[in-house]
Amino acid sequence: MKFKALTAAAALLIAMPVMSLAEPDDDHLVINGDLEIVTKTAAPAHMEETGIDTIMSGWHFRADETQQLEMDDFDNPGMIFVDQAIDSWNAVEGSAGKSCASCHDDPSSMEGVRAVYPKWNEAAGEVRTIAMQVNDCRTTRMGAEAWKYDGGDMASMEALISVQSRGMPVNVAIDGPVKAVWDQGKELYYTRTGQLDLSCASCHEQNYGNMIRADHLSQGQINGFPTYRLKNAKLNTVHARFKGCIRDTRAETYKPGSDEFVALELYVASRGNGLSVEGPSVRN
């Protein structure tokens, strides 16, 4: 009895700040004055059980000054890396004497790619992230060395590929051959880890909109990746971000490129189905 009453009182106390702060701002993201970005939309059907009916880009949870940096490509520091990646797109490397351009012509041939990855690769019989696909091209078609999974070269190339799909809705498949991997990713999303015993859901599902010390918790969406962070002044990959968040639970992390992170990426990406591809985004 006593327990029930106290819990209800505590629940009330918790509910109030949530209601006042859970609303991220209502700003609109238009890039370069003409590219409309969907940063808030109805949650995909598979999220019904989460209680979240509107999915939101992390852009809404950032300060106005940070948001503005993404509204013009001349202000977006992430675009410098896109330029660098154009050079590596055209650079011949490896024993086959080829570049990305040898097989794919212009980077614009990558339009639509970011929106549907991670994705099933029938020939390989596996779910592939863009980074896995890039490294497969480098090693098997170019005879070049694989890039570090979450290194600078890879992050820049992912930014170049992402830009080709900016404004298109994220639309990753969650059933068919990827279903088992998606299930694994979902399980990881809800698994509480580390000495702080927190899951992705503890912060990004139960507490988005709330402050955890100085951080305004977002829904942890990845439609904006790779993301330029003011904090470390570089482009950050999805797996590097996952690693940082798990480390912050005082847990042993998984490795970038591991099966676990590929599965988690597929699941988290699917929670953003309907948001626009936004990368490279700017965050703090």
Binding site: T193, G194, Q195, R247, R250
Partner: peptide
């Protein structure tokens, strides 16, 4: 704990 870490290093504890 599940995957206990060594403080905030990301390494196993």
């Amino acid at each position: 704990f599940t995957r206990p870490g060594n403080a905030y290093t990301g390494k196993a504890g």
